[in-house]
Design a protein around this nucleic acid. Structure first.
Lengths: 107, 107
DNA sequence: CGAACATATATCCCTGTGGTTATACGTCAA
DNA sequence: TTGACGTATAACCACAGGGATATATGTTCG
């Protein structure tokens, strides 16, 4: 896992894991039990996914008695947005270059 | 592979494949040979990756003689940007709700 | 203290897939 | 037409990782 992009894409690539993250985004802080009940997989599976999401910086955990509450850390999505914008930017730059070229050829 | 998000995240999750896509974004149209020479993997591996990128709608191919030229299709990134914005949106919505709540409690 | 509960960790299995080599297919040149 | 070239497909291998079950760890309650 080289850079932050790698970590983010790989972590969000799994549907089950992404669904958990989406739910945390939509509905805010949730306990492991609550997340498990709607995940379609076992509790250990959910815990494993939450561990990976935490490693990627996409979620925080907060311990309260015997429960653990997880919440989304939206800041972690920034590199993803940057990457997307960067790629789109390259595309537009080439497009502009093409326009310039055509303009110059037109003269 | 359920929705478009799944396809996109899964396709971009592999570092080698993402590197190929990035190169197409940065430098525009490239032949398979050119992409292979800087990929660090074999030509068949590159072809396989290009096939998956094409399936995901991230690249186009153009045949010219015995060469195949591939180019990035930036439009395919739109669902990714939408998803990211949506997640960030949920976060902000909850933040606004919290602000509202605090404001109301303050009165 | 002991039992029920909430979550995490350990262990294992099994599928998916990224990689390779070998080869087939199509195109250009002589 | 034959051979070199560029790319795609086939067949296979190896390993990562997502899933389950079993169990450990920690917490509340009686």
């Amino acid at each position: 896992m080289q850079d932050a992009h790698d970590m983010l894409f790989r972590t969000l690539a799994d549907p089950t894991r992404r669904a958990i993250f989406e739910r945390l985004c939509r509905q805010g802080e949730q306990t492991v039990g609550a997340l498990t009940s709607q995940s379609g997989v076992s509790q250990p599976a959910v815990s494993k996914h939450l561990g990976l999401l935490k490693q990627a910086g996409l979620v925080r955990d907060r311990h309260e008695g015997r429960q653990t509450h997880y919440s989304a850390q939206l800041g972690a999505l920034a590199p993803l947005m940057d990457w997307t914008r960067e790629m789109a930017g390259f595309w537009e730059a080439r497009f502009d270059d093409l326009e310039d070229l055509l303009k110059r050829m037109d003269q």
